[in-house]
């Protein structure tokens, strides 16, 4: 099953879009979904040594307030369910950063019975940061890349998700067999 973006790309941004994107780019509230081992790199990224707050990146406490969902590493099928719920509770526009090679192709858990292999089949991912595990410099460079995409209006994973919801749902239901999830009115 392939996910094709069905979005008509515009060539230029209007002024209001430019201002909005500028604000969005410089104010990223991050919800770190730290179940993978990569989560250990988040504290140094946020604190004095690397100080992500100078880019306007700051932690959010709940999915409702967050803009960026940072998935730090492997996802078991069980945690994938929670990730989907968290992602659907976030308010548009929302972005996802896949962090570590586990989110890209399964990493060292590529043949495990219990961890998914490619995250972008289940929820749209805007930026991947590779490495096992990526250092804080790499994390910050990933965020800067995301900021570039947002400014150019290319970080449109949330639109992709809305437009291709059936395909994403089909992929998700392949892993989560017993689908007992609430519907969020996003």
């Amino acid at each position: 099953m392939n996910i094709n973006p069905k979005i008509d790309k515009k060539d230029s941004l209007t002024i209001s879009e430019y201002i909005k994107n500028f604000a969005r780019k410089h104010s990223l509230f991050v919800l770190a979904y730290g179940t993978g081992c990569g989560a250990i790199e988040i504290p140094p990224t946020m604190t004095s040594r690397y100080d992500a707050e100078r880019f306007g990146i700051r932690g959010a406490a709940t999915p409702r307030q967050a803009d960026v969902l940072l998935i730090t590493g492997y996802l078991a099928t069980k945690t994938l369910k929670r990730v989907i719920r968290v992602y659907e509770q976030m308010q548009d526009p929302k972005y996802v950063i896949g962090f570590g090679s586990c989110t890209i192709n399964g990493g060292m858990y590529w043949d495990s019975y219990n961890t998914i292999n490619s995250l972008d089949k289940y929820i749209p991912v805007d930026v991947f940061i590779n490495g096992c595990m990526p250092r804080p410099e790499a994390v910050i460079s990933g965020f800067v890349k995301l900021q570039e995409y947002i400014q150019e209006g290319k970080a449109d994973g949330w639109l992709k998700y809305q437009n291709n919801i059936e395909e994403y749902r089909a992929n998700q239901k392949r892993v989560i067999k017993n689908w007992r999830m609430p519907d969020y009115n996003w």
């Binding site: 192709n105 399964g106 495990s112 490619s118 089949k121």
Partner: peptide
């Protein structure tokens, strides 16, 4: 894993 997940 091959049956259930997507390999890249």
């Amino acid at each position: 894993s091959n049956d259930h997940f997507f390999d890249r």
